[in-house]
Computed example of a mutant assay.
Amino acid sequence: MATITGVVITLNEAANIEACLASLAKVCDELIVVDSGSTDATCRLAEQAGARVIAQPYLGDGPQKNVGPAQARNRWVLSLDADERLTYEAIETINRLDLVSSEKEAFALRRRNHLGSRWIKTCGWYPDYCVRLFDRERTAFSDSRQHASISTVNMTQLDADIEHYSFANLGELFTKASGRFSSRAAKIMYLKGKKANALSPFVHGANAFVRKYVFQHGFTSGLDGMSVALSAAVNAYLKYAKLLELQRDSQVREAEDFNRIW
């Protein structure tokens, strides 16, 4: 059976890192944490859990997630975010894989995205297939600094889930959408030269709501479905409203630090 290296990137994840590493340890014989300057107990807890901690100032999502695999001693890497956990079924499925002779470059697992303790199965939140297990000698994360993914077509979707504790509560769902998520996206779009007009916030906000609530069946999930759809609309609206503000207001633009997107 092939050995696997588990890799997690962190920043102030003391509340999550122990449970994440404990689940990885059930299938991995090496654990690596790539930390971008935590000021809490993340690094100490990771080391106590048996992980090797690598200090690395944040490079953006893809480049940061490639740091650990580059220093792994195993060919196969299992990459989780700190707020993700392997389910029992995922552990059993991965342990049964014949990675030594596998012709595949990577394997994807379904992700159960949670709001609080509630598993949201609509709004495009499930099944949310993500490539997490991959051969680092044949593929890697893309260079994208936002929402990077493994670049491969030679992969298989496994019949197993990972848990993703996305948002602690409804308040966090909306504060993240209206705060750093939309601000970061607006700055990225501005630097790429993307343009917005006065209608852009409304059009994109309405489109996000209809997609989540109607076409991705959020209406069947009651208050949670409505909340997820509304937060997506808020995020989309503000993303384009903030982009428009950067375009037309020099005072706001000059006060913004475009070197601190990540």
Results as ranks from 00 to 15, higher is better:
110 R>H: 09
95 N>W: 02
106 A>W: 05
56 Q>G: 14
64 Q>M: 13
66 N>G: 13
91 I>A: 06
112 R>K: 13
95 N>F: 06
91 I>G: 00
114 H>Q: 12
78 L>T: 02
102 S>K: 02
99 L>A: 02
113 N>E: 13
85 R>V: 06
107 F>N: 07
67 V>Q: 06
66 N>I: 07
80 L>M: 12
74 N>I: 07
96 R>T: 10
99 L>S: 03
88 Y>N: 01
56 Q>L: 00
72 A>N: 06
105 E>M: 11
58 Y>F: 12
57 P>I: 12
70 A>T: 14
96 R>W: 04
63 P>R: 03
82 A>S: 13
62 G>K: 07
94 I>D: 05
105 E>D: 12
100 V>H: 08
61 D>M: 12
74 N>F: 13
67 V>C: 08
110 R>G: 13
60 G>T: 11
90 A>C: 14
109 L>Y: 11
92 E>Y: 06
114 H>A: 12
82 A>E: 02
66 N>R: 15
95 N>H: 01
66 N>L: 12
59 L>W: 15
56 Q>S: 13
71 Q>T: 00
110 R>T: 14
93 T>P: 00
64 Q>P: 02
108 A>P: 08
73 R>K: 13
98 D>M: 03
83 D>L: 01
110 R>F: 15
104 K>G: 05
67 V>K: 01
67 V>I: 15
56 Q>K: 11
104 K>Y: 01
98 D>V: 04
103 E>D: 14
68 G>Y: 01
112 R>S: 07
68 G>C: 07
109 L>T: 14
108 A>C: 09
76 W>G: 06
98 D>W: 01
111 R>T: 15
114 H>W: 15
